[in-house]
Every structure is written in C-alpha cells, then in structure tokens.
C-alpha cells in the first residue's frame, strides 16, 4: 500500500460508519421503548425491510450506471395485482407458477424501460417518469379499480413470504437470495463490472468494448425483475392487492442507495452499502410508531434523510477532492 487508502478501505469506512449509525439509532429508540431491540422485533424489522432491500439493489444497478428508475413502485403495483388476480382466478395453479408470472411481468416491464433508454435514446428520468404513470394506469385498467383481498388469495400464495425455513421467514430468505445473487453479479461477472465502467466513464467504456446498450438493457431488466418479485411478495405478505401498492416506493429505494454511499452521478457504490442503507430506512420506519411519532411523518422524514445523505456525500466528495489537490503539489 502506498499510503493512499485503497478502494476496499474507503468502502469499509462508509459501511462501518453506517453500522455505527444503525447501532446508535437502535440505542436511541431503545431508550424510549426498551422492547424495541429484541430478537423477535429485529427479525420483524428485517422481514419488513426485505422488499426494500431487493428493490433498492435493483435501483442500485441503475444508479450505478448513471441512470434512475422511478417506475419501480408502479412495476411492483402491477405485477402484484396481476399475480394476485391470477391466483384468485386460478386457485389450483401452483403458487410458484404465479410467482414466476409476477417476476416475468416485472422483467418485461424493466426490459421495456431498458429498450426505450438504450434504443430510443430517451433519458432514464423521462422514460421512467412516463412508464411510472403508464404502469400505474394499466394496473387500474387491469383491476377495473377493484382490490384482491385476503380471502380471495390461496394459502400457498400467502405462504410465499409468510412460511419459514430454519425459523426464519421466507421473505427474509428471498431477500438474502436476491442480495447474494446481485452481490455476485456486481462483483464476479463481467457484465456486473461493466456497469461500473459505464457509470464511471462512458467514453472509456466504449474504447474497451463495453456495450452501453447491453448494459442499459441489463440494469433496467434487473430492476424490473426484482420489482416484479417484490410485487408478488408485497401483495402476499399484506394479503391484499390494491391499486396504489408501493406508490412513492421509488424514493425509498433511491434513499437506501444514497444512504449506502452510492454516488448519484454513477460509477461508485457497493451492494453491502445499499443493504445497510435499506436497513437504516427500515428501522426508522418501524421506530416511528414506537417512539410515538405519527406515521404520517414518514414521508417528510424520508425526504429529509435523502437530502441530508446526499448533502453529506457531496460535501465529503468536495473535501476529498481538496485533500487530493493538496497532496498533488506538496
């Protein structure tokens, strides 16, 4: 090592400080409500946060490449509604087939986003702002404004997230599975590394033969795929498919990324940071009622956290730049 901290070290620092922040948050909440930090409650929080973890990891890839996906909430809404209605109409169909349909719908929607960005040259923000409305709109068209409620769903469908294995709920296992796969993709596959390249320096990426189109298709498809999975999980977990499912959820996923140290301009970030960021958001959401704050405050707090986290990222980037300059001519 040449006196300059390596990639691993900087990342570690971000992640350790997040871990400390989470511990501090837990401590503060525990002071107000001693029962908060129990194995059972923590498991409940992680369970509640699993969906956020999955979708945030999809969002992570998009942001990493320098884009943004605002349509994840609407994809969750549609795939959840479609899967629930399929489950209602064909109760004999095995639950995993319904799950697969939900995932495929999400994948297709994500691929549509990707195609518009990659081939249509429509900027990600415009594409997903548009498809956010379109996907939400066709959810209403599909459901004719109706809901699917608990007694219209099969037991097997609801067990997708609710069952448990080794004493841990299936939903957490799903979260672990998605995290593991996407960690592997981001770390050990060529395409995964090429996402970093596109986000870091598009021209250079082209010079070394990275296909921007391929990567753009891939990241939006991944984001759509995990959103599709999340839609099924969401409706099965809350035993209801409503038309407004996951409205505004995109902000939470962006928040998890930003808190986790992902640069909004693309090119840097890590899966572990995003998971910690999502957990941080999950704890706050769960802690609000415990410390007697109105759940209606949630929206404000989320926004404030995102702004604050970005402010920290920006300022620390500026400070780091200054320090580097000082070293250069010294």
């Amino acid at each position: 090592m040449k006196g300059i901290p390596s990639f691993g070290k900087i990342k570690q620092r971000r992640e350790t400080s997040l871990v400390f922040l989470i511990l501090l948050l837990l401590l503060v909440v525990t002071l107000r409500s001693p029962g908060f930090v129990s194995i059972k409650n923590l498991q409940r929080i992680i369970n509640d946060t699993s969906i956020l973890v999955m979708v945030s990891l999809g969002q992570f890839f998009v942001i990493l490449a320098g884009g943004i996906d605002l349509s994840v909430g609407s994809i969750i809404g549609f795939s959840g509604m479609a899967a629930s209605m399929l489950n209602e109409a064909q109760p004999t169909l095995p639950a995993f087939v319904v799950l697969l349909v939900g995932v495929l719908i999400g994948t297709a929607f994500g691929a549509l986003n990707g195609a518009l960005v990659a081939f249509g040259k429509v900027p990600p923000i415009i594409t997903t702002l548009g498809t956010m409305s379109i996907f939400r709109g066709i959810t209403f068209v599909l459901s004719k404004g109706q809901w699917v409620t608990a007694h219209e769903m099969t037991e097997a469908y609801m067990l997708l997230p609710h069952g448990n294995f080794l004493g841990i709920s299936n939903l957490i296992w799903w979260g672990v599975l998605v995290s593991t796969v996407l960690y592997y993709v981001s770390r050990f596959t060529r395409s995964g590394r090429e996402v970093f390249a596109i986000g870091g320096n598009k021209t250079a990426a082209k010079f070394v033969g990275v296909s921007e189109r391929k990567i753009t298709m891939m990241i939006f498809t991944i984001s759509g795929m995990v959103s599709g999975l999340a839609g099924v999980m969401w409706t099965a977990r809350y035993a209801a498919a409503v038309n407004e499912t996951a409205t505004g959820f995109e902000l939470q996923t962006v928040a998890a990324c930003v808190i986790g140290g992902v640069s909004i301009a693309g090119g840097s970030g890590a899966v572990s940071g995003v998971i910690l960021g999502a957990l941080f958001m999950g704890i706050i959401n769960n802690a609000l009622p415990v410390i007697n704050l109105s759940p209606f405050l949630q929206l404000f707090i989320q926004g404030a956290i995102v702004l604050f986290a970005m402010l920290i990222n920006t300022l620390s980037e500026v400070r780091r730049g200054k320090k580097l300059l000082q070293e250069r001519l010294a």
Partner: peptide, 14 residues
C-alpha cells in the same frame, strides 16, 4: 433530479 426528488417528499411531507 436528486434534490427535487428529496424535496418532493419533504414539501408534501409537511
């Protein structure tokens, strides 16, 4: 985009 995404929640959050 990042700022206004955050203030979107903050302004309506109040």
């Amino acid at each position: 985009i990042a700022v206004t995404l955050a203030t979107q929640s903050i302004f309506r959050g109040i």
